[in-house]
């Protein structure tokens, strides 16, 4: 029971993800088949839909933008600050910080992760592993959006008796970029507004918020 409670955040979000993904597949299928009926095309079953490029591109385009958002946030908050925001380091503390502050190099502890105790290259790679993995998922999802988006887009072009686009042609097409940019702008808005809202607004009990009585100008240390 304690194990579950100690990991409740990751478990809850994982379950919500699975429920939402399942729901997306069900209503997505209904939407797809409704369009198919209107266009006089054959309806498809659930398995055919979740293995279709149409479902794949919808999933990938949202994934890539979320991972871009977190990658940018993790990286930019190393150097950039927002005075008074619980999402920021205090002004003047921007940068990679010293080995002492980061408990690495000569300041590694017996309980530090193995790559940190190993030092050298391992420690260097490990010190950017969160950004590396998040950026990697962003790039892979974005590439997946391109690959699946092209197939889904070409399906429509073939129906309209137009030539299919090559991958290069699709990656420079308005369809690819409108799917990309409509997601990027919403993520950037959410992150930017969160950074500044957290200066003046509070949620009692949340580590994402300052203490309710904390002054607006106070930037809490991480």
């Amino acid at each position: 029971m304690r194990q579950i409670r100690d990991n409740s955040l990751s478990i809850a979000f994982g379950l919500l993800l699975l429920i939402t993904l399942a729901a997306q597949s069900i209503v997505g299928l209904a939407d797809y088949n409704s369009s198919a009926r209107t266009d006089g095309l054959a309806e498809i079953d659930w398995w055919r839909y979740i293995t279709s490029s149409s479902f794949a591109v919808d999933v990938a385009e949202n994934w890539q933008s979320e991972y871009l958002q977190f990658t940018l946030y993790i990286l930019l908050t190393v150097w950039l600050v927002q005075r008074g925001s619980s999402e920021s380091k205090p002004p003047g503390e921007g940068g990679l910080e010293s080995d002492r502050e980061q408990r690495m190099g000569a300041f590694a502890e017996p309980e530090s992760p193995a790559p940190v105790r190993a030092g050298g290259w391992w420690s260097g790679i490990y010190s950017a592993s969160l950004t590396t993995v998040m950026a990697g998922i962003f790039l892979l999802s974005w590439a997946a959006q391109g690959v699946a988006g092209r197939v889904a887009f070409n399906e429509g072009r073939l129906r309209d008796q137009l030539d299919p686009l090559s991958l290069g042609g699709y990656l420079t097409s308005p369809d690819f970029w409108v799917r990309t940019l409509q997601n990027w702008q919403s993520e950037l808005l959410a992150v930017g507004s969160m950074a500044i809202f957290a200066v003046f607004l509070r949620q009692r009990g949340s580590p994402e918020s300052k203490e309710v009585g904390a002054p607006h100008s106070e930037t809490p240390p991480p």
């Binding site: 194990q3 994982g14 293995t51 794949a56 994934w63 999802s141 690959v147 699946a148 197939v151």
Partner: peptide, 30 residues
Amino acid sequence: MRLARALFIGYLALIVLVLAAIFVIGALAR
């Protein structure tokens, strides 16, 4: 930490498997 490690691997595996499936779907032009 056992459950935490399992969740870490689980999330990574889900992401990798779904992305791999999407690339396969794209390659098969479904």
